[in-house]
Amino acid sequence: MITVFERPKSLTPAKTHYCPGCTHGIIHRLVAEVIDELDVREDTIGIAPVGCSVLAYNYFNLDMQEAAHGRAPAVATGIKRVHPDKVVFTYQGDGDLAAIGTAEIIHAAARGEKITTIFVNNAIYGMTGGQMAPTTLVGQEATTAPSGRNAETQGYPVRMSEILATIQGTAYIARVSVHNPQEVAKAKKAIKKAFQIQLERKGFALVEVLSTCPTNWGLTPLAAMKWLQENMIPYYPLGVQKTPEEVEV
Protein backbone atom coordinates (compact mmCIF):
# COMPACT_ATOMS: atom_id res chain seq x y z
CA MET A 1 0.00 0.00 0.00
CA ILE A 2 1.26 3.46 -0.77
CA THR A 3 -0.03 6.60 0.88
CA VAL A 4 -1.79 8.88 -1.56
CA PHE A 5 -2.96 11.45 0.94
CA GLU A 6 -1.72 12.53 4.36
CA ARG A 7 -1.00 15.66 6.35
CA PRO A 8 1.57 17.85 4.59
CA LYS A 9 4.81 18.58 6.45
CA SER A 10 4.12 22.30 6.32
CA LEU A 11 1.16 21.86 8.65
CA THR A 12 1.61 21.21 12.35
CA PRO A 13 -0.44 18.41 13.94
CA ALA A 14 -2.42 21.03 15.89
CA LYS A 15 -6.20 20.84 15.68
CA THR A 16 -7.59 24.07 14.26
CA HIS A 17 -10.02 26.29 16.11
CA TYR A 18 -12.18 26.67 13.00
CA CYS A 19 -15.87 25.83 13.09
CA PRO A 20 -17.02 22.53 11.56
CA GLY A 21 -17.05 22.77 7.78
CA CYS A 22 -15.16 26.05 7.63
CA THR A 23 -13.06 25.97 4.49
CA HIS A 24 -10.10 27.78 6.05
CA GLY A 25 -8.85 24.30 6.93
CA ILE A 26 -8.92 23.23 3.28
CA ILE A 27 -7.11 26.38 2.17
CA HIS A 28 -4.45 26.05 4.89
CA ARG A 29 -3.83 22.52 3.71
CA LEU A 30 -3.56 23.55 0.05
CA VAL A 31 -0.99 26.20 0.90
CA ALA A 32 0.98 23.68 2.95
CA GLU A 33 0.83 21.07 0.19
CA VAL A 34 2.16 23.59 -2.32
CA ILE A 35 5.00 24.61 0.00
CA ASP A 36 5.87 20.93 0.43
CA GLU A 37 5.74 20.24 -3.28
CA LEU A 38 7.97 23.21 -4.07
CA ASP A 39 10.29 22.05 -1.28
CA VAL A 40 10.53 25.54 0.26
CA ARG A 41 9.27 24.87 3.78
CA GLU A 42 12.61 25.83 5.34
CA ASP A 43 12.78 29.02 3.28
CA THR A 44 9.25 30.25 3.81
CA ILE A 45 8.00 32.96 6.13
CA GLY A 46 4.25 33.36 6.48
CA ILE A 47 2.22 36.25 7.81
CA ALA A 48 -0.93 35.58 9.78
CA PRO A 49 -3.66 38.24 9.73
CA VAL A 50 -6.27 39.42 12.18
CA GLY A 51 -9.56 37.67 11.59
CA CYS A 52 -10.60 34.03 11.86
CA SER A 53 -7.18 32.89 10.71
CA VAL A 54 -5.38 34.94 13.37
CA LEU A 55 -3.96 31.75 14.84
CA ALA A 56 -2.65 30.46 11.50
CA TYR A 57 0.85 30.56 12.99
CA ASN A 58 -0.15 27.59 15.16
CA TYR A 59 -1.13 25.56 12.11
CA PHE A 60 1.61 26.27 9.60
CA ASN A 61 4.84 24.49 10.41
CA LEU A 62 6.86 27.49 9.27
CA ASP A 63 8.46 30.68 10.53
CA MET A 64 5.53 33.03 10.95
CA GLN A 65 4.84 36.63 11.92
CA GLU A 66 1.53 37.90 13.22
CA ALA A 67 0.43 41.18 11.63
CA ALA A 68 -1.89 43.90 12.86
CA HIS A 69 -5.30 43.98 11.17
CA GLY A 70 -4.85 44.67 7.48
CA ARG A 71 -1.11 45.22 7.64
CA ALA A 72 0.08 41.81 6.46
CA PRO A 73 1.25 43.11 3.05
CA ALA A 74 3.33 45.81 4.77
CA VAL A 75 4.82 43.28 7.18
CA ALA A 76 5.51 40.97 4.24
CA THR A 77 7.20 43.84 2.41
CA GLY A 78 9.51 44.43 5.36
CA ILE A 79 10.42 40.75 5.55
CA LYS A 80 10.88 40.29 1.83
CA ARG A 81 13.12 43.34 1.57
CA VAL A 82 15.33 41.91 4.31
CA HIS A 83 15.27 38.37 2.85
CA PRO A 84 14.72 38.71 -0.90
CA ASP A 85 15.67 35.04 -1.37
CA LYS A 86 13.04 33.68 1.00
CA VAL A 87 9.45 32.84 0.15
CA VAL A 88 7.05 35.23 1.85
CA PHE A 89 3.29 34.89 1.84
CA THR A 90 0.35 36.55 3.53
CA TYR A 91 -2.86 34.77 4.42
CA GLN A 92 -5.70 37.28 4.73
CA GLY A 93 -9.45 37.39 5.07
CA ASP A 94 -11.86 39.81 3.41
CA GLY A 95 -12.06 42.32 6.25
CA ASP A 96 -8.30 42.30 6.59
CA LEU A 97 -7.53 42.65 2.91
CA ALA A 98 -10.51 44.44 1.42
CA ALA A 99 -11.48 46.85 4.22
CA ILE A 100 -8.94 47.90 6.83
CA GLY A 101 -5.97 46.79 4.73
CA THR A 102 -7.04 48.04 1.31
CA ALA A 103 -4.21 50.53 1.08
CA GLU A 104 -1.61 47.98 2.09
CA ILE A 105 -2.67 45.36 -0.48
CA ILE A 106 -3.07 47.86 -3.31
CA HIS A 107 0.36 49.36 -2.72
CA ALA A 108 2.15 46.07 -2.15
CA ALA A 109 0.68 45.08 -5.52
CA ALA A 110 1.61 48.41 -7.10
CA ARG A 111 5.20 48.03 -5.92
CA GLY A 112 5.19 44.58 -7.46
CA GLU A 113 6.37 43.09 -4.17
CA LYS A 114 7.60 39.59 -4.83
CA ILE A 115 5.20 38.05 -2.36
CA THR A 116 2.22 35.72 -2.55
CA THR A 117 -1.12 36.56 -1.00
CA ILE A 118 -3.85 34.06 -0.21
CA PHE A 119 -7.07 36.04 0.04
CA VAL A 120 -9.90 34.13 1.69
CA ASN A 121 -13.23 35.68 0.77
CA ASN A 122 -16.23 34.36 2.68
CA ALA A 123 -18.32 37.51 2.40
CA ILE A 124 -18.65 37.99 6.16
CA TYR A 125 -16.69 38.85 9.30
CA GLY A 126 -16.42 35.54 11.11
CA MET A 127 -14.34 36.11 14.18
CA THR A 128 -16.06 39.23 15.47
CA GLY A 129 -19.55 37.83 15.00
CA GLY A 130 -20.99 37.86 11.52
CA GLN A 131 -20.79 41.54 10.66
CA MET A 132 -21.00 42.84 7.12
CA ALA A 133 -17.77 42.51 5.14
CA PRO A 134 -16.67 44.65 2.19
CA THR A 135 -17.44 41.55 0.13
CA THR A 136 -20.89 40.80 1.62
CA LEU A 137 -23.36 40.43 -1.23
CA VAL A 138 -26.26 42.83 -1.71
CA GLY A 139 -29.19 41.37 0.19
CA GLN A 140 -27.00 39.05 2.26
CA GLU A 141 -27.78 39.20 5.95
CA ALA A 142 -25.16 40.13 8.52
CA THR A 143 -25.35 41.19 12.17
CA THR A 144 -24.68 44.76 11.05
CA ALA A 145 -27.00 44.38 8.06
CA PRO A 146 -29.92 42.60 9.71
CA SER A 147 -32.26 43.14 6.76
CA GLY A 148 -29.59 42.24 4.26
CA ARG A 149 -26.99 44.50 2.74
CA ASN A 150 -28.72 47.54 1.32
CA ALA A 151 -26.80 48.92 -1.64
CA GLU A 152 -28.40 52.34 -1.16
CA THR A 153 -26.96 52.84 2.31
CA GLN A 154 -24.25 50.21 2.58
CA GLY A 155 -22.85 50.20 -0.90
CA TYR A 156 -21.69 47.37 -3.06
CA PRO A 157 -19.37 44.43 -2.53
CA VAL A 158 -15.81 44.95 -3.71
CA ARG A 159 -14.24 42.70 -6.33
CA MET A 160 -10.64 42.84 -5.18
CA SER A 161 -9.19 40.49 -7.77
CA GLU A 162 -10.55 42.58 -10.62
CA ILE A 163 -9.21 45.77 -9.01
CA LEU A 164 -5.78 44.26 -8.38
CA ALA A 165 -5.58 42.87 -11.90
CA THR A 166 -5.63 46.44 -13.23
CA ILE A 167 -2.43 47.23 -11.35
CA GLN A 168 0.75 46.98 -13.36
CA GLY A 169 2.84 45.55 -10.53
CA THR A 170 0.72 42.41 -10.25
CA ALA A 171 1.92 39.33 -12.12
CA TYR A 172 -0.73 36.80 -11.29
CA ILE A 173 -4.27 37.19 -10.00
CA ALA A 174 -6.76 34.34 -9.90
CA ARG A 175 -10.07 33.58 -8.21
CA VAL A 176 -10.85 30.03 -7.21
CA SER A 177 -13.30 28.20 -5.01
CA VAL A 178 -13.19 25.15 -2.77
CA HIS A 179 -16.79 23.98 -2.92
CA ASN A 180 -16.09 20.55 -4.45
CA PRO A 181 -13.07 18.27 -5.08
CA GLN A 182 -12.64 19.48 -8.65
CA GLU A 183 -12.54 23.12 -7.59
CA VAL A 184 -10.19 22.26 -4.73
CA ALA A 185 -7.81 20.76 -7.25
CA LYS A 186 -8.00 23.92 -9.38
CA ALA A 187 -7.49 26.08 -6.32
CA LYS A 188 -4.34 24.20 -5.48
CA LYS A 189 -3.04 24.66 -8.99
CA ALA A 190 -3.60 28.40 -8.75
CA ILE A 191 -1.93 28.61 -5.34
CA LYS A 192 1.04 26.70 -6.68
CA LYS A 193 1.28 29.06 -9.60
CA ALA A 194 1.17 32.04 -7.23
CA PHE A 195 4.15 30.67 -5.30
CA GLN A 196 6.02 29.81 -8.49
CA ILE A 197 5.55 33.37 -9.71
CA GLN A 198 7.29 34.53 -6.54
CA LEU A 199 10.12 32.03 -6.95
CA GLU A 200 10.59 33.31 -10.48
CA ARG A 201 10.51 36.92 -9.16
CA LYS A 202 7.87 37.94 -11.64
CA GLY A 203 5.91 40.22 -9.35
CA PHE A 204 3.03 40.25 -6.94
CA ALA A 205 0.75 37.20 -6.99
CA LEU A 206 -2.63 36.74 -5.35
CA VAL A 207 -5.17 33.98 -5.24
CA GLU A 208 -8.65 34.87 -4.04
CA VAL A 209 -10.32 31.79 -2.62
CA LEU A 210 -14.10 31.85 -2.25
CA SER A 211 -14.81 30.29 1.08
CA THR A 212 -17.76 29.43 3.31
CA CYS A 213 -18.74 30.53 6.78
CA PRO A 214 -21.42 28.05 7.80
CA THR A 215 -21.68 29.48 11.32
CA ASN A 216 -22.30 33.09 10.39
CA TRP A 217 -24.22 32.31 7.23
CA GLY A 218 -26.53 30.21 9.41
CA LEU A 219 -26.22 27.15 7.16
CA THR A 220 -24.94 23.61 7.47
CA PRO A 221 -21.49 23.08 5.93
CA LEU A 222 -23.06 21.34 2.95
CA ALA A 223 -25.75 23.96 2.45
CA ALA A 224 -23.04 26.62 2.71
CA MET A 225 -21.15 25.03 -0.17
CA LYS A 226 -24.32 25.18 -2.24
CA TRP A 227 -24.94 28.81 -1.23
CA LEU A 228 -21.41 29.75 -2.25
CA GLN A 229 -21.88 28.14 -5.63
CA GLU A 230 -25.26 29.71 -6.29
CA ASN A 231 -24.71 33.18 -4.85
CA MET A 232 -21.03 34.06 -4.65
CA ILE A 233 -19.76 32.70 -7.94
CA PRO A 234 -22.19 34.71 -10.10
CA TYR A 235 -20.90 37.92 -8.47
CA TYR A 236 -17.29 36.76 -8.06
CA PRO A 237 -16.59 34.83 -11.26
CA LEU A 238 -13.89 32.18 -11.04
CA GLY A 239 -10.86 32.22 -13.27
CA VAL A 240 -7.49 33.77 -13.87
CA GLN A 241 -7.73 37.55 -13.93
CA LYS A 242 -4.14 38.08 -14.86
CA THR A 243 -1.14 35.94 -15.63
CA PRO A 244 2.35 36.66 -16.98
CA GLU A 245 2.27 37.20 -20.69
CA GLU A 246 4.73 34.58 -21.84
CA VAL A 247 3.01 31.53 -23.27
CA GLU A 248 3.49 28.35 -21.34
CA VAL A 249 4.56 25.43 -23.47
Binding site: M1, T3, E6, C22, I26
Partner: peptide, 21 residues
Protein backbone atom coordinates in the same frame (compact mmCIF):
# COMPACT_ATOMS: atom_id res chain seq x y z
CA UNK B 1 -11.31 3.49 -4.71
CA UNK B 2 -8.62 5.66 -3.07
CA UNK B 3 -9.74 8.74 -5.01
CA UNK B 4 -9.01 10.93 -1.96
CA UNK B 5 -11.93 13.26 -2.71
CA UNK B 6 -12.91 12.95 0.93
CA UNK B 7 -9.45 13.97 2.11
CA UNK B 8 -9.33 16.87 -0.30
CA UNK B 9 -12.58 18.25 1.08
CA UNK B 10 -11.72 17.66 4.73
CA UNK B 11 -10.87 20.96 6.46
CA UNK B 12 -9.33 19.19 9.44
CA UNK B 13 -6.76 16.80 8.01
CA UNK B 14 -8.67 13.85 9.44
CA UNK B 15 -8.19 11.47 6.55
CA UNK B 16 -5.24 9.44 5.29
CA UNK B 17 -5.72 7.62 1.97
CA UNK B 18 -3.71 4.70 0.63
CA UNK B 19 -3.86 2.49 -2.40
CA UNK B 20 -2.35 -0.75 -3.52
CA UNK B 21 0.84 -0.55 -5.51
Amino acid sequence: ISCAFCARMCPDVVITVRKEE
